[in-house]
């Protein structure tokens, strides 16, 4: 049957046609397409990878930011606490200082008052003694005007000395 016997002429033309197509397409056709597709595939893969990395990076950045924020907040709290403490300390210290100062001033005032009082007392005493001596002088002068009286006085004094001697 002629359908099943290959014609040499057609074999020849088929070899030429297919040969040309094969040569050209294997060299310049399909490898180029495959390479381009591969390139695009790699590019897409790389882009996805990059996007994923960027996402991760972003997550990390957000995390870092949050951490920094909490850190800052904590620091702020600490600083605030510290300042409060310092303020209180300062106020306390100031208060104590003021108290001490006033105490000192009070003490100084007190001692001066004391000294002045003593001075005054001493002066008064001196005045009083001088006055009393003068008074006594005057009294004595008054009382020991006659002889008799003087003698009596001497006797008594002598008695007193005797008594004290014995």
């Amino acid at each position: 049957m002629s359908l099943l016997t290959p014609e040499p002429g057609l074999l020849f033309w088929m070899m030429i046609s297919f040969g040309i197509a094969l040569l050209i397409l294997v060299r310049y056709g399909f490898p180029v397409i495959l390479k381009a597709v591969e390139k695009r595939k790699n590019y897409i893969d790389a882009s996805i990878q990059a996007a994923r990395e960027a996402q991760e990076e972003l997550g990390k950045v957000v995390e870092t930011g949050e951490r920094m924020l909490t850190e800052a907040r904590r620091e702020q709290n600490a600083i605030l606490k510290e300042t409060t403490r310092l303020k209180e300390q300062l106020i306390g210290e100031a208060r104590a200082g003021a108290a001490a100062e006033s105490e000192k001033m009070l003490a100084a005032a007190r001692s001066r008052i004391e000294a002045e009082r003593e001075e005054a007392l001493r002066t008064i005493r001196r005045e009083v003694s001088t006055l009393s001596v003068q008074l006594a002088e005057r009294i004595l002068r008054e009382r020991l005007g006659d002889e008799q009286e003087q003698m009596k006085m001497i006797d008594r004094l002598l008695d007193e000395v005797d008594i004290s001697k014995s």
Partner: peptide, 21 residues
């Protein structure tokens, strides 16, 4: 058909490789 195929594939190759992305 061989010529048609060659044209088709080479045109595709050219178009694809000009801007592969």
């Amino acid at each position: 058909s061989s010529l048609l195929l060659i044209l088709l594939v080479l045109a595709t190759a050219r178009s694809v490789s000009r801007d592969p992305l």
